[in-house]
């Protein structure tokens, strides 16, 4: 008989700049090795995943990450009482800190997670990426971390263009002049606050790699993907799996040197002379994670198995040339559904 698991998943915002939650659930649902009851954890009432009842069995609103661990824990205790959770898969950068902090408490309640250690999580932070690269021997672009606007004015003469202006969590804008840097700085400041990162612009082909580490130095799955269509927000709207040993080796080295536990995404710029720059390390599955399942390495399902204590050997094959094309779909629901989630915090 198949094991029945109750799995809570966040990031159900399948919008134009999508969270990975819906894709994670789709991949989990496709795995024939266990049955899953999926509990959605949402922040906002209009996250599309809430209303996808064929994917999500029940949804609970949870407090924003800025509310801290106490309010999150109180809410999770209530949800656990109702649902008897086996596993939580958080998928937002901004919420991971709280979930990592709560990991032991959750474990004490019988709720599994499969998250990186806090030290791993913080070492790959955008703000520390350059030091991280130096420490582990990865090629990373040079950067400057700015903690106030005055710092930007001070370095005006030193800047070389183009330069990439990046937010702490999200957003990156390429600027070709000081005026553009200022404009980008203020735009990102208003949205994500300080600090702001100025990163060396690297020209090349943008490759993303979805990786699943077992926490003991082994990469269980590595799927490199090239974006074929990019939205104005820089998100992949279509992508294709690649076969490039340099990328596989890079991902293996990353997992081995960090002992990464869980899913992550390496954003790589492959220069024309073949140098793979690590531009960013996202500490969770990417929104295109379903492609890993379609290509033969179901990373979300593998994460579930490892979180539940199963030992997995690394995948060895995947389909090259597998393409995803994202699409927009108007999901129709009723005001009564909206009322339930916005009024009661449950749907």
């Amino acid at each position: 008989m198949k094991q029945k698991l109750v799995i809570a998943v966040t990031a159900l915002n399948a919008i134009d700049s999508p969270g990975p939650g819906v894709a994670v659930i789709r991949a989990i649902r496709e795995c024939a090795d266990f049955e899953a009851r999926i509990i959605g954890l949402s922040y906002e009432a209009l996250e599309p995943g809430l209303y996808m009842h064929d994917l999500v069995d029940k949804t609970y609103q949870i407090p924003y990450p800025s509310g801290g661990t106490d309010s999150l824990m109180a809410r999770l205790e209530y949800i656990h009482e109702e649902e008897k959770l086996d596993l939580i898969i958080p998928n937002f950068d901004a919420e991971l800190f709280n979930f990592i902090k709560l990991r032991d408490k959750l474990s004490g309640m019988g709720i599994h997670t499969f998250l990186p250690e806090l030290v791993q999580f913080e070492a790959r932070d955008k703000l520390k990426l350059y030091d991280f690269g130096k420490q582990h021997g990865f090629i990373v672009p040079k950067d400057r971390i700015l903690h106030e606007f005055r710092e930007l004015q001070k370095i005006e003469e030193e800047l070389e263009y183009p330069v990439v202006v990046k937010g702490k969590f999200y957003d990156a804008i390429i600027a070709n002049s000081y005026e553009q840097v200022e404009k980008a700085f203020l735009k990102i400041l208003a949205k994500w606050g300080l600090p702001i990162i100025l990163q060396e612009f690297v020209k090349g082909t943008e490759i993303n790699i979805a990786v699943l580490g077992d926490g003991k130095g082994k990469a269980i799955s590595i799927i490199p993907m090239r974006k074929l269509y990019i939205t104005d927000k820089g998100k992949a709207w279509a992508g294709i799996t690649l076969d490039d040993e340099r990328l596989i080796t890079l991902a293996q080295k990353f997992i081995n040197s960090t002992q990464w536990r869980g899913g992550c995404e390496l954003e790589v710029m492959l220069t024309d002379d073949g140098k793979p720059y690590i531009m960013e390390v996202n500490p969770r599955f990417p929104a295109w994670i379903y492609l890993t399942a379609a290509a033969g390495q179901n990373q979300p399902a593998s994460l579930v198995k490892m979180a539940m204590g199963e030992h997995l050997e690394p995948f060895t094959n995947y389909e090259v040339g597998k393409i995803f094309i994202r699409y927009a779909w108007d999901l129709i629901t009723d005001i009564s559904e909206f009322q339930k989630i916005s009024g009661n915090g449950e749907l």
């Binding site: 082909t205 090239r226 690649l242 076969d243 490039d244 090259v320």
Partner: peptide, 17 residues
């Protein structure tokens, strides 16, 4: 060696996509 070529002359480079 790794370049796929179909009978109709469609080429796919799996290293670059």
């Amino acid at each position: 060696k790794n370049i796929a070529v179909s009978d109709e002359g469609f080429l796919f480079n799996p290293t670059t996509g």
